[in-house]
């Protein structure tokens, strides 16, 4: 009986939170289509999410590209196919690794901060103050963050693709001594534009999901400083899992 109660409450809680996140995202997006859009706050978020996250995306992407080239080389060498590692690195970065790792980096760097900032505003009655002054907190706080994450994540993925491929090229050509011309030619020959656009679409979807989760967790913070910590942890864990689940669904059914 206890097991049923336990799992039952987990399921109810999951559906409740999922519903809350979807409703919050819908309200935020309705603000965009209604045109009640806050340009200054959105540009601030473009800077926070896009510009200030560039360095960590460059750093991680460089090493992902390098590791990818190294691993693929050792596998492909057995079949004499080491010349196509350039294409393999590019396609795996474009379709999979760049969107997923960049989104995870944004979760670690921005979504956690988003949740903590909104959570602190919630427990210190700043959100209540906004409401009392007849200012919609979703329009003021949530919509700019969701829009900025959805818009900036594909740009960061593009940056990640470029840097990751440079990393792959450095390892492939300078360390593993793969022919430089065939490395580039294989990418030119086999890589489709769709390999990149799929990644950008994934990034935008991930952006919508993780920013909605971050804002929802922040807005539902209670119980003081401990509550801020809890909601931040939940935002990071739930966003990270959601990226992987959404990645599978998008890869399996759409692309």
């Amino acid at each position: 009986m206890f097991i049923f109660t336990y799992f039952g409450s987990l399921i109810v809680n999951f559906i409740d939170q999922l519903g809350g996140i979807v409703i919050l995202a819908s309200k935020a997006l309705i603000n965009v289509f209604k045109g009640s859009f806050r340009i200054k706050q959105t540009i601030d978020q473009f800077y926070t999410i896009g510009v200030t996250s560039s360095f960590i995306v460059i750093l991680t992407s460089l090493f992902i590209g390098m590791v990818e080239a190294l691993q693929i080389y050792h596998g492909f060498q057995k079949f004499g196919a080491e010349n196509i590692i350039g294409y393999t690195v590019a396609v795996s970065l474009g379709r999979e690794l760049s969107p997923v790792f960049t989104a995870l980096m944004i979760v670690a760097r921005n979504i956690s901060a988003m949740s903590a900032e909104i959570g602190t505003m919630k427990i210190t009655e700043q959100i209540d103050a906004m409401e009392v002054m007849a200012v919609d907190p979703i329009n003021y706080i949530v919509t700019p963050r969701i829009v900025a994450t959805v818009v900036m994540l594909p740009f960061l993925v593009a940056l990640s693709n470029v840097v990751g491929n440079i990393g792959g090229y450095i390892v492939g050509v300078f360390i593993l001594k793969v022919n430089s011309v065939s490395y580039i030619d294989n990418i030119k020959q086999y890589l489709d534009l769709s390999d990149l656009t799929y990644g950008f679409i994934k990034a935008a979807v991930f952006g919508l999901i993780i920013s909605s989760i971050g804002c929802y967790m922040g807005l539902n913070t209670s119980k003081g400083a401990k509550g801020v910590g809890l909601s931040t942890t939940k935002a990071v864990v739930v966003s990270s899992v959601a990226i992987l689940v959404a990645d599978y669904i998008l890869s399996a059914f759409l692309f």
């Binding site: 602190t120 505003m121 210190t124 009655e125 700043q126 209540d128 103050a129 002054m133 007849a134 200012v135």
Partner: peptide, 27 residues
């Protein structure tokens, strides 16, 4: 109706990210 209300919250509820001028001018 809320525009006819003014509220002083228990801990003042000032916006951390804004200076005093921006806080007071906000509404």
């Amino acid at each position: 109706i809320r525009m006819k209300f003014g509220v002083l919250f228990q801990e003042a509820a000032l916006f951390d990210s804004m200076n005093v001028f921006e806080n007071v001018a906000f509404p």
